[in-house]
Computed example of a mutant assay.
Amino acid sequence: MSHFLVITDSADLSQSVAYAAGVQIGAIPATPMPARPEELPGYDAERPVVVLDAGPDADAALRLTAGCTAVGMVVVLASEEPERIGFAALKAGAADVMSVYASIPELRASLARADRLATERAYATAGQQGATTEPPRPQGRVVTVASPKGGVGKTMVATNLAVGLARRYPQSTVLVDLDVQFGDVATALGLSPRYSLVDATHGQTPSDPLALKSLLTQHSTGLYVIPGSESPGASEAVGAREIGLLLHTLAGAFRYVIVDTAPGLNEQTLQALDQSSDLVLVTSLDVPGVRGLRKEIDTLRQVGLMLSSHHLVLNFVDPHRGITVKDVEANVGETIDVTLPLAKEVPLSVNQGVPLLQGNGRDQATKQLTHLVELVSADRSAVGRTSRWKGTRG
């Protein structure tokens, strides 16, 4: 646990931070604003985290933020207008920007993020000084949703899985559209994002949590999204290395990282699988779909990427197709975990940009998708953390 210090003239904010942190909090007045980090009583403490109220003097608060960040302190800025100072705060090095009226759960999530960042910086400093202690590994789970061919409902499954997890665990899930050329995650969620996967994998961004923070789009359910590119030619700008760094960084911030991939097994999909803890394979109830699924399973086993934690989803299930679920299981040598019926509700929800699990329907498709959420969340469910990032732009 870090040493927390609150700089504010507001007794309410100081008490709220103390309650959210669950520890004794040192507080000093924000008027006048300290000019340098050396003037703070917690300056020499190990892993110090400063909650700084920018209300009395925003310019002075930003200068102090930059100074604190330069000496390794972690700063969370509080403001009555967090959106107005957000960009300047991130530029100054603030770990987060929150409202002075934030709820206790919001404060707790922000402080948890700051505490983890302070811990990571302490480990990095120890490493530079020759210490051998390894930093804690990311605890979030990367769940890759893949399919052998297109047109089988993979994106529908990925978006519903992500929305279902986001509703079950608020502020805990991010969905990455890794179908760089023809990704439709944004359309399936009814979003008009400002940034895309290309932005999130540019330069040092995929390994920089603060830079990634400003690129996430937030869905109405609380789900965070990194959509695919609008340009099919952008695939050349998204390399496997950047994908690996991106997923590693996101796994350090979210409980669940859902990855919607392009059909087949391209370079980006293989990289995602290499980073994944869970795999969801989707296919359709027809001969080409079943054959493709069997080939994909065989290939993944050959390259050592058929994860032990995996689930098979069979879409467009209909008793009049001449193939049964048992036929599919016999052919691929695996149990089908989720069967999605050929139902009018599914294309209607896709066309409207409203995933089935965004509502409270009782149709069979919704029930089966809910079952998939339960299967994924049940595996190694000891992982428990809400997102470190809040209030991103969409």
Results as ranks from 00 to 15, higher is better:
E334R: 11
T324L: 09
L356T: 07
V97D: 02
A126I: 11
S2W: 04
I104G: 05
Y43L: 03
Q358N: 15
V50A: 03
G322Y: 06
G72T: 04
E81V: 14
V51M: 13
T299R: 12
R121I: 01
V75C: 01
H219A: 03
T132A: 14
L342W: 14
K390Q: 15
I336D: 13
E296P: 07
A20W: 01
A200P: 01
S192Y: 07
L165R: 05
G67R: 00
G228R: 07
V174I: 05
G244M: 05
A89V: 02
M73L: 12
T392K: 13
D208T: 04
E236R: 15
F316H: 12
H219P: 01
R168D: 11
N160Y: 04
E81S: 13
Q139R: 15
R167W: 10
P135N: 07
T159L: 07
A109E: 00
S229F: 04
M98L: 13
P288C: 05
A272L: 12
F316S: 00
A114T: 01
Y256D: 11
I85F: 11
V287G: 01
N315S: 10
A92E: 03
L197T: 00
V145A: 14
G244I: 04
G222T: 02
I323H: 03
V185W: 06
L348T: 12
N160I: 06
K390W: 15
L189E: 06
K367A: 04
V338K: 06
L250T: 03
V313C: 01
V185Q: 05
S309H: 15
G333Q: 06
R380M: 15
D179W: 06
G322S: 14
Q364I: 06
E242N: 02
G353V: 08
T65E: 02
G72H: 06
F4T: 11
G264A: 10
T65Q: 08
T125C: 08
F254M: 09
D184I: 12
R194W: 10
M306G: 03
S284W: 05
A365N: 06
T299D: 00
S172L: 09
V350I: 12
A237R: 09
I258T: 07
